[in-house]
Write a protein that binds this DNA or RNA. Structure first.
Lengths: 222, 222
DNA sequence: TTTTCTATTTTTGTATACAATCACGATAGC
DNA sequence: GCTATCGTGATTGTATACAAAAATAGAAAA
């Protein structure tokens, strides 16, 4: 697999990772030439990467001033999760009314995938199936724009995710919540399903809290 | 007022306007050198502008392929408004519980501003006060991230807005809806206030429909 | 000491040059 | 005739050079 083209993208990912790992202080200024030297590229692709990072919200670009790291505080992560929960809840609410038979099948398939992966203790498979399940719900909302924005927020939260934390007892509980959501959807109870999803995401958020508390506001990168 | 620095920003605004006005076909490829010549700049700031436009969702950048115009269809605009309505409704729901006394004062001030502007027939003042009113609600949600994302979506919708369309009878109706929302908030009825806001935004969306229908999928820029 | 202005240095923004990749058409093979 | 391969031109990605703006430091004045 060639991992070549688009230096800008590669740099963006690396810096994203570094910021999430706490390698930079919040508000810290990023020096373009220094970073360019560090990644062994010119300033051109580096500046592109900085713009991409701004789109993700990890840096703020101030004209004629430079790029400043915007590392989300714990408060902000909670805020982001509050919105994530509401958006997923909205997806479920709309999906309950709009889901197509084909989508319902894929939803059930994903749910089965979660069950099997969990019973066999395959964490990676569980996360994959879990991702499919949520993805189908976004799609079934019938609002492609909402689906895109939800995926975008998910991606924005992902660098701060630590899967291992889920592996305790949370995984099994998560399964049960999925089942409850799907049942509510089957009964056509949109609001109930939405509420369950909101709680489901909020519960997820707590594992992030633990991560943040563990890593702290300032941690070293590998 | 100096309108100088940051050619990239200027270009971005101009292209944004052009796309909104229908100067480009959806899916049309944007040639970098041609655009650079057109705006009399080099490719460097032009490419920055294209990235900014991608962040707004008006173009899609495909690696090694180029920039392609993504003009929202009527369907997509409706989808965007559906989400906008839900986000504003969420802001109201949270604000009902979390609003501070100071914010409540500013909310009432903005509402008064709307009334006065309307009674005096000053449309511009109305839009300004209306913007303040919604802005205070975003802020009062107590979720700064939600507020930012809502503002971002508002900005993303704004190029497709045509104020004149509101001036018919919609303006007065809008006022009444504001009043109803604020009253529900005062009574602490979060869900009711949220529902009112959702309807309020949806009603707004219909004026956009009219605009789209009038301008058509392909219109000429000024 | 504090402030303000200025000269210098640093850093950002833009233009240009070069390299890599893609699109397209011609040609060869089946 | 159809497909595949290759070569050429066009287009995107990156590096470098230059211009403009801001940060810094130092000196002069209050």
């Amino acid at each position: 697999m060639p991992e070549k083209s688009r230096a800008a993208d590669r740099i963006c990912s690396e810096i994203e990772q570094a910021i999430a790992m706490g390698a930079y202080e919040d508000g810290e200024k990023l020096n373009e030439v220094a970073l360019a030297r560090q990644f062994d590229v010119s300033r051109t692709p580096l500046r592109e990467a900085l713009q991409s990072l701004q789109a993700i919200g990890l840096v703020e670009l101030i004209p004629n001033r430079g790029a400043f790291v915007r590392r989300p505080s714990m408060t902000r992560l909670v805020e982001m999760f509050e919105l994530m929960g509401e958006m997923e809840a909205l997806c479920v609410k709309l999906a309950t009314k709009r889901i197509t038979p084909a989508q319902r099948l894929r939803l059930q398939e994903a749910a089965r995938g979660c069950e099997e992966a969990l019973s066999e203790g395959r964490a990676d498979d569980y996360y994959a199936a879990n991702g499919r399940l949520h993805g189908v719900i976004y799609e079934a909302s019938g609002n492609e724009f909402l689906a895109e924005e939800t995926r975008r927020l998910l991606r924005r939260l992902s660098p701060f995710r630590r899967r291992q934390l889920d592996v305790t007892g949370r995984l099994r509980a998560s399964m049960g919540e999925h089942a409850a959501i799907l049942e509510a959807m089957d009964r056509g109870e949109a609001e109930a399903a939405a509420d369950l999803m909101r709680v489901h995401i909020t519960a997820l958020s707590r594992t992030y809290d633990q991560y943040i508390a563990a890593v702290g506001p300032r941690a070293e990168a590998g």
